[in-house]
């Protein structure tokens, strides 16, 4: 597989504690093994404490890119939380942007405290669609909660992203990288999460 766009700019966004950085590391190292130049930048600040987390992954066959994606230049958005997906599209999206997003909302503290209102789910979905060339919506957190491991939602989303065919990666590439770098007792569960994500995307309409 080759990337038709060089460089390909992928943004992974979510909320602290969702395993955002694990995903960007995993995608980055898998692509690097396939010979791509990859630059990953992680913005987390104090995000472990419920703030927004944002990783950029820039993939090129020709050059090592800088860490920052210019505004309006994302090709691909992997959103682990729908409000964060919209936040990212709002700044980095363009008419060609493709996105895969988790639909399970994590309520910001202002919403939890009753000071602000979380956007209406349908309107959120409609706006994400309007700002993307193509958008897939996956209820990854519910899938992970059913698996009994809520933290695996990130891997469910990765399974969906791979299955979209938008990244120059196969599921096997990711599985191989997991076997190389994950603790052995976690591998089977994570592969299952990948599969569930892939089938969720395939059954998407």
């Amino acid at each position: 597989m080759t990337t038709s766009r060089d460089a390909l700019n992928l943004i992974i966004c979510g909320v602290g504690g969702q395993g955002n950085i694990l995903l960007s590391d995993l995608i980055g190292s898998t692509l690097a093994k396939k010979g791509y130049h990859v630059t990953v930048a992680e913005t987390f600040g104090v995000a472990q404490r419920g703030g927004a987390v944002f990783s950029s992954v820039r993939i090129s066959q020709n050059r090592a890119c800088g860490p920052l994606i210019p505004e309006g230049k994302a090709h691909l958005v992997l959103g682990l939380e729908p409000l964060e997906t919209l936040r990212t599209l709002q700044k980095y999206g363009n008419p060609e942007t493709v996105c895969v997003t988790n639909t399970y909302p994590l309520l910001p503290i202002g919403v939890l405290a009753g000071k602000e209102e979380y956007p209406d789910r349908d309107e959120l979905k409609k706006t994400i669609k309007a700002l993307s060339k193509a958008a897939w919506f996956i209820d990854a957190t519910s899938i992970a909660l059913e698996l009994g491991v809520r933290i695996a939602a990130n891997i469910v989303m990765l399974g969906a992203l791979i299955s979209s065919g938008e990244l120059p990666l196969t599921k096997k590439d990711i599985e191989d990288e997991m076997r190389d770098t994950f603790p052995p007792q976690r591998i089977e569960l994570n592969i299952k999460a990948l599969d569930l994500g892939a089938s969720a995307l395939r059954s998407h309409n």
Binding site: G50, A52, G72, Q90, P95, G110, E117, P119
Partner: peptide
Amino acid sequence: ARDSNYEQKAQDAKGLVIGRGA
């Protein structure tokens, strides 16, 4: 950075994007 039509849609979406405090 992007065409005016898209830019307008992005600006219109701004109201939905509430903050996420730590």
